[in-house]
Write a protein that binds this DNA or RNA. Sequence first.
DNA 1: ACAATTACCTGTATGC
DNA 2: TGCATACAGGTAATTG
Length: 275
Amino acid sequence: MPELPEVETVRRTLEPLLAGKKITGVDVRYGGIIKNMEAGEFSRLLKNKTIAEIGRRGKYLLLELSDGYTIVIHLRMTGQLIFTQVAEPEAKHTHIIFHLPGKEQLRFVDIRKFGLLFLVKKGEWEQCGGLARLGPEPLSGAFTLQAWSALLAGQKGGLKAFLLNQAKVAGIGNIYADEILFEAGLHPQKRVETLESAEIAALHAAIVAKLSEGVACRGTSISDYVDGQGEKGGFQERLQVYDQKGRPCPRCGTLLVKAVIAGRGTVCCPYCQRR
DNA sequence: ACAATTACCTGTATGC
DNA sequence: TGCATACAGGTAATTG
């Protein structure tokens, strides 16, 4: 599932391929993906606009266009944004095709149609789902231990739910939440208000380490995720607990268990992550 | 005020 | 073999 490392990998792979290129036309096969206007208007507004750069905020991709417009994209669970040649056979569930010069295309593919796409002018982020309400970027220089401590001060509730809350920290999803909690040695249902300073520091280090490792490995390809060129990532080889139910804990050998916590399938070690 | 559940979708795996 | 069912999880909306 595309979380911060996956979205960042898509951004890095697409940027050199798209920067400076003009959108010569847009085909919309399934308009339901576009959330803030009709397909016809979307295509009309985008024709002949140039892609300046690609940004990322949390799990959102931001295609900045040369004249102040931005295409805001969220891949949700199965969304893919793939740069290809016209001759490449079209994948099933291809919903939007951006035509580029020289027989190149950018295709939005999404099996489950959960993905979201907005076309807005700069400063109109309020209409883009949760984009305007995102918490800090965990891989930015501003995400210091001090900032993280301040973020936790006065907060209550389960730890996993907190990590998954995009308004608290941007970009962590189910895979990295489980990996972070295991790395920090904390139970997913531990209450945030009971965290001691050493645990807060361990969490901060685990968030930065695991997300950075995910980016370095070019994301996690368990089912659908691929980067901007259709290539799989490698972090699935490094998973310690996620998708590892019933296997021995890499640290102590106890069998890993799975339960539903914060509404998500959650795997942890009953020994290393005691409540 | 908070947490749990549901809706949105389709493909894959499982059970009978 | 076929069919029904459960499950995967990002986020918003709804329910408890």
